[in-house]
Design a protein around this nucleic acid. Structure first.
Lengths: 302, 302
DNA sequence: ACTACAGAATCGAAAAAAACGATAGCATCG
DNA sequence: CGATGCTATCGTTTTTTTCGATTCTGTAGT
């Protein structure tokens, strides 16, 4: 008879491609896992792994079982969560991914209030690039992601939290620093500093003003917004800073001046993303509206 | 920890709404089932059944678990089938539903050939009305259904086997019996005999010629095509018989004459239906093409 | 109100399954 | 031709499942 545990073990085996490593990862001995896999193979009437080669390989049937078995495990987990959620919303575990250009500027204000309003919620946080967070989301390793759009979230659910305006960050030495607002034309020829590749903020900033400005190559890519601010402060160029970060004081201790971009607003959408049909949906939406409330004063909520 | 067995037991409980009956149905004792349900409730952290009332009732959470749990069980079963199928097509169990207006006229020719070509296939047959077969299909109690269209099969997969022409069955005493073909106009005023309600053949025949003919009420509804043929033979009226049944000799021993309907062909589509994404798909399609081959000489395969 | 009854919960014992530790088998590689 | 790194297998221990018997509970009938 097929059991979920067998699938779980097999999934680990498929991930580690080693009986011993997989067993270790599952917290059982190799012999137990070996027996479980054999059971599974018996239940299915097919070999799932090819043990002949130098390295372990999944058979065609194995690939099939991995794909559908993973889905089954996800659904099973989701069923449990769904029931728990249904009985008591905003309790239990909530694994929340947040992108680096949001996390540091929102969490300090968020966590205490969240703990106050939903003391039962066990929040797990992970800060990473959008791409990695979305991967984790699809594999069921995260329940929801707080990220910035535009981003391809086809096949996912989305709840907007607010719109985050990009402000031009100018060192006081720069002539532009005396303006409250700056038109895109004035940016022509200015040097634009960006975060390193992979940060969605980089892409969003580029699409907001990139065409007008001179983008530097690899040598001047910052790994964090803090670094970026320092570089701007030292006259390496200009950059755009989300209002969220500016309001959180990312430029404290520098002489940076902020100016709004005139004309078509330069901004990104911030929102919560989760898997379709996931039973965490209730919590995700509650989290989104909670964030909206908190960020209302900061963001230009449309 | 959630297990598939718990879900299985819970599903039985939800069906029978009685611990003892469900246990009996599962082939276990009441105490075992009771314990399993308690385990499940612990794993999910919620009461699933309301034991207080006169009769057992599912809680809201229980309904949820039933719905999603059933899906999970279906998928699990499908996974097993899928792998078995993948390794060896046309082996193992194949639960096949066939409607009454097809089964008797096709099975005698089908079964021997099927056993010859696919000796490994364990065929389970069920003859019932389209509606009941489709219900069984959706609940995972059947793997595929051989039925006649038009019928609402939205959400299912379909492979056509062939087109089955309706022939006018006329007793030799009737003036129409001397024609090889009959136009619809000639049918005006003739009495039309039909199968009892629920048979799709009834609906198909009605839509083929019903407008032209005089349909009798409840008193002359036959419960099987054999009865219907006898009634026609005894002069109670006319009917349409699928070529499939005629070719199989449904009118043997009677003096019935068959005539084709002129003009727009009166016919039904015969095909195999199965659940979308079911791993039985390979077998279902093989079965369909096998049937097409066998029925080719009989049906007017377009 | 008391009793009888039906059905679910509980308990201890028995059976089955899972997990472990140690060891044997089997490739690959130096 | 060992040595090495893995997986399979075996006997034992531990845990889980199941059973049978009993107790408990709520309902209906007297």
């Amino acid at each position: 008879m097929l059991t979920l545990r067998q699938l779980q073990y097999f999934k680990a085996l498929a991930t580690h491609l080693s009986f011993s490593k997989a067993a270790q990862a599952c917290g059982i001995t190799q012999s137990t896992l070996s027996a479980a896999i054999k059971q599974l193979e018996d239940a299915l009437g097919a070999e799932l792994v090819d043990r002949t080669g130098r390295v372990l390989m999944l058979t065609e049937a194995g690939e099939m079982v991995l794909a559908r078995g993973s889905g089954l495990l996800l659904e099973a987990e989701d069923l449990v969560q769904g029931v728990q959620m249904h009985t008591l919303p905003m309790t239990g575990r909530f694994r929340f991914g947040v992108i680096p250009s949001i996390a540091p500027y929102i969490l300090p204000g968020l966590l205490p209030r969240l703990r106050e309003q939903y003391p039962q919620l066990k929040l797990h946080l992970r800060e990473d690039l959008s791409r990695n967070l979305m991967n984790a989301l699809s594999e069921g390793k995260l329940d929801a992601v707080l990220m910035a759009l535009p981003y391809n979230i086809a096949g996912y659910e989305y709840a907007e939290v607010g719109k985050d305006e990009f402000l031009l960050a100018v060192p006081s030495s720069n002539a532009l620093s005396k303006f409250k607002t700056v038109s895109r034309d004035k940016l022509s020829g200015q040097k634009l500093l960006l975060l390193e590749d992979g940060h969605c903020l980089r892409d969003h900033v580029l699409s907001a003003v990139g065409a007008k400005m001179e983008v530097h190559g690899d040598e001047v890519q910052a790994t964090s917004m803090t670094t970026l601010v320092q570089m701007v402060d030292n006259g390496f160029g200009l950059t755009l800073i989300p209002r969220l970060a500016a309001a959180a004081g990312v430029a404290n201790g520098t002489s940076l001046c902020f100016a709004a971009i005139e004309g078509r607003k330069a901004m990104r959408d911030i929102g919560v993303v989760w898997r379709k049909h996931a039973s965490i949906e209730g919590n995700a939406m509650l989290m989104a509206s909670f964030l909206k409330e908190i960020l209302g004063p900061v963001l230009a909520v449309k």
